[in-house]
Design a binder for these strands. Structure first.
Lengths: 237, 237
DNA sequence: CTTGACAAAGAACATTTGTTCAGTTATACT
DNA sequence: AGTATAACTGAACAAATGTTCTTTGTCAAG
């Protein structure tokens, strides 16, 4: 079962390994009880007992009366815990899309310059590549926050985030952001060009389309590829 | 709404620096009170307040009801904190949420069993953890696809994906999925319990609320935490 | 066989520590 | 001014967590 004096027993080793794994994953040390649960030691006092021994052997340092007051000083020799290796893959699956501004009905929406490639981690929206259309390039995408209730006919709420792709021309059936120069209005609509006229179809099936006779007043700002609504915060009323 | 000033205040910076120094010296994170004493914040609740903000800004991760449950993700230089970790992080930033079924107005929606923890990568929706409320555990989340136009008063379209959290009770102001047993109907609404009556408020500000006198007919199926609309495919008409 | 050191369990206890809440002050925006 | 929101206080509370104590079992040496 356990040897007494010399060296580390099996339980000592398990505890050290667990300390390392736990710290690795959570960024702070485990409690005595957590150690016990994960090393099949049923009593807190026994864990305490082993921790005191590990401290005498200078594997750890403890702070008394401090929760999780364990500092791991050294680990077992070559037993590095390298289980995950696909980190590079996982990162490329995650795109960080810059949030470049707000979209407001009465104002032209911001469009990033064609050479923008800065990375602002504070305002970036992180999206799994699997949510986007295949082969979409990250550098063609940007995000806008919707401001106000004016996009409700596009089924887009105040506070929603729309992920846009830079395009200057729309295909039929795409949802695009449009600046209507004759009425100073930004809008999100499904775009259809039908025998010389532009039909802008709201996403809300209850709403009627807008027919525009002169395609020149329709300025395509970008194509909507994704809409995200975060419900984290509570509604007030 | 988030905080209006998106940058870091002086106090945010002091806290981050202290977290770094403390972790460096002791090998575990400080308590709320220790942070307060060292950054001249007299109230624990204010420290908690700032820690929650730092978590929203993804400077730290917190574990609720865990003493010293603070993980420093990056420092003021933007450098990721390196001690042990690195690999596990990138993977845990991407959650795979099981798509368990459809939500249809006239049918009870599927709810995964309470002990489900299987991982089906085929039908999973991948979401960056940063899109979700902090501290949300992946095993409490599931995804449903909206079927039909019946949720338009919730500003949710046919084909949208809603990410739900398993709850059996709703807090005021949360958007929840509800089964109304007396009319055999599933609906997504903002929930308010007001002196014994339930008010279900549509997300669409143009729609009127439903008042329900008997709270018993309101079966809360889950809380909506995220709505995703993918526009990859073209609209037909 | 007894004794004593070691290993272990389990419970009781005391402290540490995160959370919440009612209220107050400050700041910004009409 | 007045109103809304953010920042802050202080205290009380509940949960998490380290510590201590009593008891039991094992095993090798006397």
């Amino acid at each position: 079962m356990a040897r007494k004096k010399s060296g580390l027993s099996q339980r000592h080793k398990r505890i050290i390994q667990f300390l390392e794994r736990f710290q690795n994953e959570f960024g702070f040390p485990p409690t005595i009880r957590e150690i016990g649960e994960n090393t099949e030691i049923s009593s807190t006092s026994v864990v305490n007992y082993y921790l005191n021994q590990l401290e005498e052997m200078h594997y750890i340092e403890r702070s008394s009366n401090v929760s999780r007051g364990i500092k791991l000083l050294r680990t077992l020799n070559g037993e590095a815990v390298q289980k995950f290796k696909q980190t590079a893959d996982a990162i490329t699956e995650l795109l960080s899309i810059p949030l470049v501004g707000n979209i407001i009905a009465g104002q032209p929406m911001p469009v990033p310059p064609s050479d923008f490639n800065y990375y602002d981690p504070d305002s970036g929206i992180e999206i799994a590549r699997s949510l986007l259309p295949p082969r979409e390039k990250a550098d063609q995408l940007y995000a806008l926050k919707v401001n106000g209730d004016s996009m409700i006919d596009a089924m887009v709420n105040d506070g929603d985030i729309v992920i846009m792709k830079k395009v200057d021309q729309a295909e039929n059936g795409e949802m695009v952001a449009i600046w209507l120069s004759d009425r100073d209005e930004t809008t999100l609509k499904y775009f259809f060009l039908e025998n010389g006229k532009v039909r802008l179809q709201p996403a809300n099936p209850l709403m009627k389309p807008i027919i525009i006779n002169d395609p020149k007043v329709v300025k395509v700002q970008g194509k909507v590829v994704l809409v995200i609504r975060q419900l984290d915060d509570l509604k007030l009323s």
